[in-house]
């Protein structure tokens, strides 16, 4: 039986992890390779690296980091942040990334999804959608959720799937950082309407939140950052809990 995936997300700046991490085993809390290795050994199903480096010339550091990670870990990982062209994707896949994730660039120029899917295959193109509810309607936001667009989230999700996205990473800006649970209703609506997997993100605060997003939310995978980094919910404990709750999970 296909299992639900648990995905820790690491924020990267200039080749180092940022935002706090609080792992006692870590010699160097900023080393993404060391952190990635711990997560992979603990049973994380995949990893996402989100590069928040601002300057273009520092992007080379990202490709070098991707190679180090690919050499060190034996589970799949996705790289996102600032990717806008087919050439960007080529560089990161050649460096060893399994998938890439695009966000603002896809909104700005949707045809880039078709181009990337044709060139590299849908399986390695994840489209990240940041969504926020405005007066009862879910709208796509870009630039880390700061910039609203006129795109309705459900319609945009359908469009990116039609254009060849292999997966959708759906982040609810309303839930992100609240630790009050994932956006289950919206996730379920999108996951039911599409034939590609949906990764839910934003709002994880307790183990039952993961159970809820896999059951009510119909998510195929769930992503979180700080609750894993600060060991509030260790990955092995979460998997044991979900397994006990009857969720199909990789042991």
């Amino acid at each position: 039986m296909l299992t639900k995936r648990i995905i820790p997300c690491l924020d990267i700046k200039d080749g180092r992890t940022v935002k706090g991490v609080n792992f006692v085993q870590l010699r160097d809390a900023g080393d993404p390779v060391e952190l990635a290795k711990i997560y992979s050994d603990e049973g994380a199903d995949e990893l996402v690296f989100l590069d928040i480096t601002a300057t273009v010339d520092k992007r080379k550091t990202l490709a070098e980091l991707v190679t180090k990670v690919a050499k060190a870990i034996n589970i799949p990982f996705t790289v996102g942040g600032g990717i806008s062209t087919v050439e960007d994707v080529k560089v990161l896949l050649a460096a060893g990334a399994d998938k890439i994730s695009i966000n603002s660039a896809a909104v700005k120029n949707p045809v880039v999804i078709d181009q990337m899917a044709r060139e590299f295959g849908s399986q390695c193109i994840v489209v990240a959608i940041d969504t926020r509810n405005v007066d009862g309607i879910d709208f796509v936001h870009t630039h880390g959720g700061r910039k609203p667009t006129l795109l309705k989230t459900q319609a945009w999700a359908q469009e990116v799937a039609n254009r060849g996205a292999g997966e959708i990473l759906l982040t609810s800006m309303d839930h992100d950082g609240t630790k009050s649970g994932f956006a289950n209703e919206l996730t379920a609506e999108i996951s039911s309407a599409l034939s590609i997997p949906v990764i839910a993100s934003g709002g994880a605060g307790s183990m039952p939140h993961f159970k809820d997003v896999f059951t009510f939310g119909k998510a195929d995978a769930a992503l979180a950052a700080s609750i894993f980094h600060f060991k509030e919910i260790p990955v092995p404990n979460l998997k044991e809990y979900l397994n006990g709750e009857g969720i199909s999970i990789r042991k």
Partner: peptide, 17 residues
């Protein structure tokens, strides 16, 4: 060919036994 696209998505992506 998924019998039910809500339950079975294609491609088959993820960990299976």
């Amino acid at each position: 060919i998924p019998e039910n696209s809500q339950e079975f998505k294609v491609p088959h992506i993820g960990w299976n036994e």
